[in-house]
Amino acid sequence: MSEQRPPVPPFTRDSAVEKVRRAEDGWNSRDPRTVSLAYSADSRWRNRAEFVTGREEIVEFLTRKWNRELDYRLIKELWAFDDHRIAVRFAYEWHDDTGTWYRSYGNENWEFDAEGLMTARHASINDLPIREADRLYHWPQGRRPDGHPGLSDLGL
């Protein structure tokens, strides 16, 4: 029996927006094992200059990431889509163990199988140091509240 992760391709604008929000919610959980289940067992990633293959490597990668990127909060926004691909832009805020805050900006290209599992993820990301007073994401850890502004609303 195969796994299914709705919404599944072919994507419409509404289903692509839903897929992006579900991905954002998953990453904001900061639970590597749960997040890994959105990806196929043999999913291939490029994240910055790091290459990851398969769920176990995804779990290891995300564990390292969230041990380093503290108080992580993410917003994703749909950029473009077709029947089985989605492009997003995103920004997330976090601080390191010295208390230095960052806003990390990036773009991702995603490809999905027929079951809605992501088979490929290509991410390009840049980190900008920010003052704590310049943070824009102040919701409690976890899912971004429905009424919270998105990237475009925040001018990002």
Rank of each mutant, 00 (worst) to 15 (best):
L136H: 04
R48T: 14
T119M: 13
E69K: 06
D127A: 11
I130S: 04
M118V: 01
P129H: 01
A16S: 03
Y92Q: 05
D127F: 10
A41M: 11
E56L: 09
R89E: 12
G155L: 08
P145L: 12
F81M: 08
T12L: 09
T98F: 09
T34D: 03
W79P: 02
N107P: 00
R143I: 13
E3K: 07
W27I: 02
H95M: 05
A38D: 09
F61G: 04
E77S: 01
F51G: 04
S43G: 09
F11A: 01
K76Y: 10
R135C: 13
W101V: 10
G26A: 14
R85P: 03
E93R: 04
E18I: 02
E56C: 11
E24R: 00
L62Q: 04
A87V: 11
D96C: 10
E60F: 08
R73I: 06
S152V: 15
D134L: 06
L117E: 05
E108S: 10
R85C: 15
R48M: 15
T34Q: 12
M118N: 01
G106S: 12
G26C: 07
A120T: 11
I75P: 00
R85N: 02
W45V: 03
Y102F: 11
V8Y: 01
R143P: 00
F11M: 00
Q4C: 13
W27L: 03
V35M: 12
G54A: 07
Y72N: 05
P10R: 04
Y72D: 04
T100L: 07
F51V: 12
Q141A: 12
D146C: 08
I130F: 07
A123T: 14
P6Y: 07
A114I: 00
L74E: 00
R143M: 14
R48P: 12
Q4L: 13
A23K: 04
L62V: 08
E24F: 02
F112N: 02
D82R: 05
V8F: 11
S43E: 00
D25Y: 03
G155V: 05
L154T: 10
R103E: 12
E18V: 01
T12E: 09
A87N: 08
A38C: 03
V17N: 03
T34H: 04
F90P: 00
A38V: 08
W45L: 12
S29V: 06
L136E: 14
H138Q: 05
F11W: 08
W139D: 09
G155H: 02
P10C: 06
H84M: 11
H138M: 13
A23Q: 03
W139E: 03
E93Y: 02
R48F: 15
R44F: 10
Y102S: 01
D127T: 06
L117Q: 03
F81H: 07
R131I: 06
V8T: 15
S124N: 11
D113A: 08
L136M: 04
A41D: 14
V59P: 01
T98W: 02
N126M: 14
S36I: 06
R89Q: 08
R21C: 09
F90S: 00
L156A: 05
G147Y: 11
